[in-house]
Amino acid sequence: MIEQLIAEGFSYWPLVLNGAKALLVLIVGWIAAGMISRAIQRRINATPEIDPTLGNFAASMIRWALIAVVLIAVLGVFGIQATSLVAMMGAATLAIGLALQGTLSDLAAGFMLILFRPYKIGQFVDIGGTSGTVKTLNLFVTELATPDNVQIIVPNGQAWGAIITNYSHYATRRVDMVFGIDYGDNAEQAKAIILRIAGNDPRVKSDPEPWVRVTNLGDSSVDLTARVWCDAVDYWELKFSMTQAVKESFDAEGISIPYPHQVEIKKEG
Score class of each variant (00 low, 15 high):
W229D: 08
G129F: 06
V214R: 15
I127Q: 03
R227C: 05
A46K: 07
A192D: 12
G110T: 00
N56P: 02
V134M: 02
P155W: 14
N149F: 14
I153E: 09
K191Q: 14
V141A: 08
I257E: 15
D185F: 02
P208R: 12
L23N: 04
V69R: 03
Q244K: 14
V16F: 15
F116Q: 10
F10M: 12
I36A: 06
W211I: 06
E248N: 14
M242Y: 05
Q123D: 06
R63V: 03
V222W: 02
Q81R: 13
G132W: 09
V141M: 12
A232R: 09
A7P: 05
E253K: 08
L66N: 04
Q123C: 07
G19D: 03
L54S: 12
K205H: 15
V178D: 13
R196I: 01
M61D: 03
A226R: 04
G97R: 07
S131W: 03
M242H: 11
M35F: 07
N45P: 00
L98D: 02
T103A: 13
A162W: 05
I265L: 10
V150P: 01
I152F: 04
G269T: 09
S241M: 05
S37C: 04
R63K: 10
L71T: 02
P155Y: 10
G161F: 04
L224A: 02
K21V: 15
D126M: 06
G218C: 10
E237S: 11
V25G: 03
R203Q: 12
D148Q: 14
F140S: 09
Y235I: 08
A187N: 03
W160G: 02
I194S: 02
A171Y: 05
A232F: 07
G9A: 15
Y119N: 01
S168I: 00
P52I: 01
I40W: 14
P147A: 15
K267H: 10
L137A: 12
D148M: 06
F10Y: 13
L71H: 03
A99M: 13
Q123L: 04
E143A: 13
Y183N: 07
I127V: 11
T136N: 13
E49N: 08
S105W: 01
I40D: 08
I40T: 11
D251P: 06
L137N: 10
A32M: 08
T146D: 01
A33E: 04
P147Q: 07
T53N: 11
P48H: 09
T47V: 11
Y259H: 12
V69A: 15
V141P: 01
E237W: 02
T83I: 10
G180F: 02
I80W: 09
N156Y: 01
V74K: 03
G34M: 07
L195T: 11
V86T: 10
E8R: 15
S206P: 05
V74M: 08
A252V: 08
A87I: 07
L137F: 04
D201N: 15
V125G: 06
L144P: 02
A68S: 09
P14A: 09
E264P: 01
F179E: 01
F116S: 11
E143R: 12
K21N: 03
T225G: 00
K266V: 13
Q158N: 11
I2E: 14
A108F: 15
Q101T: 14
S11N: 13
I257T: 15
K266I: 10
S105Y: 00
E209Y: 11
N156F: 01
I40C: 14
E188G: 06
D51Q: 03
Q262K: 14
E268P: 00
V25L: 14
T93Y: 12
A192G: 07
T215P: 00
